[in-house]
Design a protein around this nucleic acid. Structure first.
Lengths: 238, 238
DNA sequence: CAGTGGTCTAGACCACGCT
DNA sequence: GCGTGGTCTAGACCACTGT
């Protein structure tokens, strides 16, 4: 990003992360920051708002911006993050196995759910994520071909998000996520290491571009013992 | 709220919800809205940003603010919502049963986790939520007495959040939520209707006031078949 | 009281989409 | 070229916290 306020956010984020501004301390005031970064107060406030939304700081009227304790509140898991990005951040040794890769007409259910035209085709990609030699996650991706052309097995072995954003230069913007718990299917038992488990966590993801077109539906099936989702929520997201 | 921008947000939200601005249409431009509401464009933009964060609209450069399909994206479940608020919105017939209500010294684990002083005491409230005559959810609340004095069984039968916000006039600000799946405990089997279920969804909630003090820890244990969590996430929360 | 964050303004320039 | 949203500014006034 080349925005001033986003760059300032990133600098402050880094400064908090590397301990320049430790938890329980107060950031320099908005006026001071405006001087330091040679900008206006409103621009500083945009940067601080992002920090606040992400749970880095709490603003205190008349006092300043309090740095929150990352240990207690942080979570690289929230928001829109791909498995690749996540595994990297967590430092796990992980392997992705392509179980199947095909281009087909969508099922009528999927066609309805993704509001596809009759002639539209999709990439169907099933991937198993192995962590420490155990098959933990089954990702079933359904991607609209006309929006994401040229997909290959090799790309799926890396990161589909990376391909979309850095090769195709398309901008992923928002997603609806839905979490439920179900009984494992035959497929789950075949593809994952589920000995002794009687349930599976299902995360359905509807993923949209900046222009509000739905281009991908992903069903992510997690072995329950390895599933953990952490979220930071503000009561009034003003 | 008496802020201009928040009132404008609420009006626009209502207008979208009651169909004045249907899905797939474009809102009046920021300049038009600024005139209509007799305010400046930046103030309008603050209102629109809230709509955007909540998944009501998608801003399209050069075009306008597109109204998104609530049916597809909405979910009164995200964020910080109490069971009471939720049950009301969903229109379920629900009953809250107080299993236990006591004031005690916290366990050493809880004392550490909530950063309490030696002399601090807590309210410990166990509540079972019954939906359609089935005991579905066990809520275990631990509330710091010095911050939330005067709690009673009767209040717990209604809404603790309501008491805190409207009687004590304290402002709940943010929370960290953590979702996992565990094996049910003896307690779960005793208090909930779990015949045939072998897992339980555990939601841990750390809840903070506006001044960043942690005043409540809640462990919410859900029967897996009735659990559903929906989230709307933007990739860059700017 | 001085300093902090919260709100609001009026105007500027830019990048983008459309026609 | 015109209208859209995206960014940025310089300044104002308010509410709150501390001394």
């Amino acid at each position: 990003m080349l925005n001033k306020y986003y760059m300032i956010f990133e600098e402050l984020e880094a400064a908090i992360r590397n301990g320049k501004y430790p938890p329980e301390t107060i950031l320099p005031s908005e006026n001071e920051l405006a001087e330091q970064y040679n900008t206006s107060r409103e621009t500083i406030r945009k940067a601080l708002n992002i920090l606040s939304q992400k749970g880095y700081i709490q603003k205190l009227r008349g006092k300043g911006s309090l740095v929150l304790d990352l240990e207690k509140l942080q979570f690289p898991i929230s928001g829109l993050v791909s498995f690749k990005e996540l595994a990297n951040k967590m430092g796990h040794s992980s392997v992705t196995i392509i179980e199947s890769f095909s281009n087909k007409k969508p099922s009528s259910l999927l066609q309805k759910e993704m509001q596809l035209r009759k002639e539209d085709t999709i990439w169907e990609v099933f991937r198993v994520r192995e962590i420490n030699q155990e098959r933990i996650i089954l990702d079933k991706d359904y991607i609209v071909e006309k929006y994401v052309p040229g997909l290959t097995k090799e790309i799926c072995r890396n990161s589909i998000f990376d391909y979309i954003e850095n090769e195709l230069n398309l901008k992923i913007s928002f997603a609806k996520k839905e979490f439920t718990v179900e009984e494992p299917t035959e497929e789950d038992y075949n593809l994952l290491d589920l000995e002794g488990f009687h349930s599976i966590v299902v995360v359905k993801n509807y993923i949209y571009f900046e222009n509000a077109t739905l281009f991908q539906f992903t069903e992510s099936r997690h072995r329950p013992d390895k599933f953990r989702f952490v979220d930071f929520a503000r009561r009034n997201e003003a």
